[in-house]
Design a protein around this nucleic acid. Sequence first.
RNA 1: GCUCAUGUAGCUCAGUCGGUAGAGCACUUCCUUGGUAAGGAAGAGGUCACCGGUUCGAAUCCGGUCAUGAGCUCCA
Length: 638
Amino acid sequence: MPAVTLPDGSRREFDHPVTVLDVAKDIGPGLAKATLAGKVNGQLVDARHEIDDDAELAIVTDRDPEGVEIIRHSTAHLMAQAVKQLFPDAQVTIGPTIENGFYYDFAYDRGFTPEDLAKIEKRMKELAKQDLPVERSLMDRDEAVKYFRDMGEAYKAEIIASIPQGENISLYKQGDFVDLCRGPHIPSTGKLKAFKLTKVAGAYWRGDSDNEMLQRIYGTAWANKDQLKEYLERLKEAERRDHRKIGQELDLFSIQDEAGGGLVFWHPKGARIRREIEKYWYDMHEKAGYDFVVSPHIANLDLWKTSGHADFYSESMYEPMEDEHQAFQLKPMNCPFHVLMYKDRLHSYRDLPLRWAEMGTVYRREMSGALHGLMRVRGFTQDDAHIFCREDQIEAEVMAVIDLTLAVLQTFGFEKFDVNLSTKPEDAVGSDAIWEHATASLRSAIEKKGLEYSVDEGGGAFYGPKIDIKIHDAIGREWQCSTVQLDFNLPERFDMEYVAEDNERRRPIMIHRALLGSVERFFGVLIEHYAGHFPTWLTPVQAEVLTITERQDAYAEEVTKALRDKGFRVEADLRNEKIGFKIREHTLKRVPYLLVLGDKEMENGQVAVRTRSGEDLGVMSVEDFGERLREEVAGRHH
RNA sequence: GCUCAUGUAGCUCAGUCGGUAGAGCACUUCCUUGGUAAGGAAGAGGUCACCGGUUCGAAUCCGGUCAUGAGCUCCA
């Protein structure tokens, strides 16, 4: 007879087999009502799962992450049921949960429209209200194949047919709808109270672009309506911060149809921000012991054959151009150039490490459908650097790269990082010994920095292990910008060497690293992170001088010049407009400081300072304001 | 590249049944000189993405191309 141990260590004994729900009822009616599923000896099961032996049991409710997962999965089923009722010809395929929600793919001869979605959602709500019990049953595999095939569900039958013969298949039934599913599911559809269908899209059967296109419906589902509301609010906030929208409003950049997709035009205001980013970047690299190099944009195709890119990277490279019987390749990467410069002369072990950095603009072929604002483009500038070092220097160099990376990212207001170490994949170049040593060096570097990290076993590139650092932006989204990659391949291919202490020739280790990744993409992330409210050190216009009448024009020019002479980015708005209008306009342009000049200020040689958040800082002398700006900018406050 | 949607003034968008195009903001000029988030008037501005087809007639219907968006795929 089962004795059930609960997470708090308490035991309950029963003289007959009990279901998860029975145990919940035994504890209390409130819990019974909240029960979605159970976790028996660590295994997720349905609420009606029967326990007939001693077991550890945790009741799963919508307060558990697993409970929300189950809600999402069950909502996918609810949607499939609604779709089958409304569109009997649609065939069901798969419907997994994803972050924040779920999707379900249907085979249907046309796409679903937003009106269809509204209808489906309405039917889902009706079905949820009916509180249909969700019942699990088992069926032999072959029987299940036949069952679904007879129903006209060819895709489901195909999925089941790929399950080994002889296994039992679990089916879930709610009302008139039966679906193949591993489960577990909620006990009845009434538990689904907070969901919304969000979008439709095409998706390939089994994710293979050679297969037929299915109709995918995305939805989101939550434990309760408040969470749903909060999530939808987050989506709206992301939309408000969209860098494409803010980029246009603030006149920062554009992408021109006539020039082609994925090619970025930096307008004066955007270019000012970029210059500030770059100035800071050069400054930090100089302090960290880097040298700067500059390489060309095209090079003989043979170089890319030597590097191997012409072979394994050709899909991302533009076609070479011919000239005087030579083929030239537009560069998709900077690394081979730095290698050539290294090889230009013989290096001693005393020279190493060499740290060569370059803001290198590269061009890569991207499928038109993959382009996205500044985040995914065809031409971009990598804040690239290559470190050539000895094997015994790897750890110290990587630690220094991590320090530099975190310092730079923190300056831009990123506080939370996810570090990931990727190890040797199946197909790789280089000996096991060097992989082991290098991976251990990376691991040790991360650990000595006291960073938490995850490991992606086999996730490294074929040429070496790597560390990726993800940042969390102001609304909690993750972006991967920084990467540190070891490379055993290029030094080999280019036969790079240095002369060691014992006068032997040795192969240097090459470390690729980028902190921002792509300047374009990083700029896009920054726009969204700050929602366009760039900190004063970065912002294109730090202060706008606003006159109340034209009597102050000369004084305004004087104030503007005085601040510009101190190195600040200041502009004057002398237009024949009312002060309220000017304030509105420059506030919307997110200028940090508005300097209002009327007769009073002019007489006393002062400025009246208002911030973009609407705060009135009162009147002060031009010198005092300049000092305030200087401090804020020098500290790169965010 | 694939599926679906979209493409009209610098921007945001309307445009009925196929009958040759409209609003607000921005821009120019004039009036107004106004003290902390939109003062008023007038004017200018469009090869309706591009190419082709149907039609007496196309922003509108059809086909293609390009671009953008969402997703898929890809992402050293």
